[in-house]
Amino acid sequence: MELTLTVNGRKVAVDVPTDMLLVDLLRERLGLTGTHVGCDTSQCGACVVHADGVSVKSCTMLAVAAQGSQVTSIEGISGAGGRNSLHPMQQAFHENHGLQCGFCTPGMIMSSIDFANRNAAPTEAEVRHWLEGNMCRCTGYQNIVASILAGTAAMHATGSVEAA
């Protein structure tokens, strides 16, 4: 079916099968391989992107369900502060050693940005609870939690928060 949507600020018109998953549209059709697939039961969160500003698991959403939506993937969040500039949440993951192998990282960052949009001053416990849907096998989560706390503060300090 004919699908029109906006991906990372760019208008996209594609003909897709109705059973195509959003993650396959991004990875296979649009070449946006930053969004990863780490499981087949919607548990791991490596595939998290934003649809209209809200985090979704792109392995569990049909591409056609994104008709007319604004979809943002990990490739679409940097550069707001100029070429090569990182999003505050990306910067926070870098500065707090919030990633090791990097496979869960795009989903972690996209999920964290949604969290930051909803929470101005979260506690560590709230961050840990939010991450129920994002698995990491490398970091033991400690530095991811630190990254999200720092990134959330930076987003609110720099006004890069979006109303959900």
């Binding site: 990990i74 990182l86 990633l99 990097g102 960052i109």
Partner: peptide, 15 residues
């Protein structure tokens, strides 16, 4: 800080 981070946090890793 890690030299390898940037490609991973921007979704430019190559798996």
């Amino acid at each position: 800080l890690r030299k390898e981070d940037k490609r991973f946090i921007t979704g430019r890793g190559n798996y």
